[in-house]
Write a protein that binds this DNA or RNA. Structure first.
Lengths: 218, 218
DNA sequence: TTTAAAATTTAGACAAGACTAAAAATTTAT
DNA sequence: ATAAATTTTTAGTCTTGTCTAAATTTTAAA
């Protein structure tokens, strides 16, 4: 049994963890949850007890697979309800959040499943965010090629199109991994090359690289 | 602000109060809520503080108008969601209760109102129970013909089927009006006549009368 | 009508989830 | 590398809603 409060913390941790394996700080969670750090520490201990997070004192937390599934299940419900509210009940996109925050905690597998059917298996909520499926898989509809990112925009590396060893080694050498934050400093139109900023160091990349790296805007 | 727990107690009290002015015992509430009497006493005090119930020690509670409205609002939501689950999500009538128990606590006037519109203003839930309107009025769809009331049952006059002057004058002469409380003393099967008690006086009526007067059990 | 039984309330305790203040660990900056 | 600043944890408290056990009031029975 996962309490309402636990679900909210798991969701917060999930959203704060930029990449799969990133650990999330107590303060960041507290800030997102609008609570004090001490309250967060208390909750982290409970989540750790229940196997939802891996916790090392002073080192922040990482979601376990169990925790990730719990978080994603809540997010799935949240986004399905948002679709329902907009499509069926005439809510506007900016009115749905607060209500969906309540509806996401309703516990009934049949309800979620039938709602999904009723809405004809939507893959995105009204804000364009992907809706996880019932197994916790998230359609990566939001990923775009780095080449499509505008100047001065930031994004996060979420995958590669070309997964040859050569390319992966190239990325490795330049400290680009899943979850790496990338800012586009400039784009040259004549050869489609780019200049990036990665962890405070600049990197010039070619068209080939820009067209083989998937990123997520954030 | 009414908490989730308070809402459940108010609902329980509402359902236990047979007639408008009946007071409900602590034990009865405890039994319905699956809690101990001491817990119920605690909650009664809170509800009394907030003006939802009138409370006299050892004498049970009565809902105030404020409390009644709060209870009815929850019941309205419960029944609307039941209609939604059955009509739109293909739940069967016996699967809806548990889920509706959760959904009834979602706080959003717009949600309730739009759900009502989406369902085209249903007046009864899938079990045939009336759905209160947004002002807390309950459609007396539960009205049945007086002829259907069992011996020793009490009911309240809520309307007539035959509205001819003759019939209305007949009712008037015998002090039967909207809201009059009627108790069925006896029923004769051979001619479907009945003996009633109205304001302490007995009245024998024919089949014709029994089949033209709508009453509400309560 | 006095006593026994049943119902109700009080008193004290506990778990969940939050807080404040203080202590401890980590990180940053000199 | 050490002091200062920041982050995190601990310790102790509070509120909500629950419990048990004991005390009190009401009701029922002899």
């Amino acid at each position: 049994m996962v309490t309402l409060s636990e679900e909210n913390y798991l969701k917060a941790i999930y959203h704060l963890a930029k990449h799969e394996n990133a650990s999330v700080s107590t303060n960041a969670i507290a800030q997102k949850m609008q609570t004090k750090a001490s309250s967060t520490t208390d909750m982290i201990k409970k989540l750790s007890e229940k196997g939802h997070v891996e916790y090392q004192k002073y080192k922040g937390v990482k979601l376990t697979e169990k925790g990730r599934l719990a978080a994603v299940s809540v997010i799935r419900k949240h986004r399905l309800w948002e679709v329902f509210l907009v499509q069926k009940l005439n809510f506007s996109w900016d009115e749905v959040h607060e209500v969906a925050e309540q509806l996401e905690h309703i516990k009934s597998d049949k309800l979620t499943q039938q709602l999904d059917v009723f809405l004809e298996h939507p893959t995105e909520d009204p804000h364009g965010d992907p809706i996880p499926d019932c197994n916790g898989n998230i359609p990566s509809s939001q990923k775009v090629l780095l080449a499509q990112i505008d100047q001065n925009q930031s994004c996060i590396c979420v995958g590669v199109k070309d997964s040859t060893t050569d390319f992966l080694q190239y990325l490795d050498k330049h400290n680009i991994a899943l979850g790496t934050k990338i800012k586009v400093i400039s784009k040259e139109s004549f050869d489609e090359s780019m200049t990036l900023k990665i962890n405070k160091t600049e990197l010039a990349i070619s068209k080939e690289v820009a067209h083989n790296l998937f990123v997520k805007i954030n």
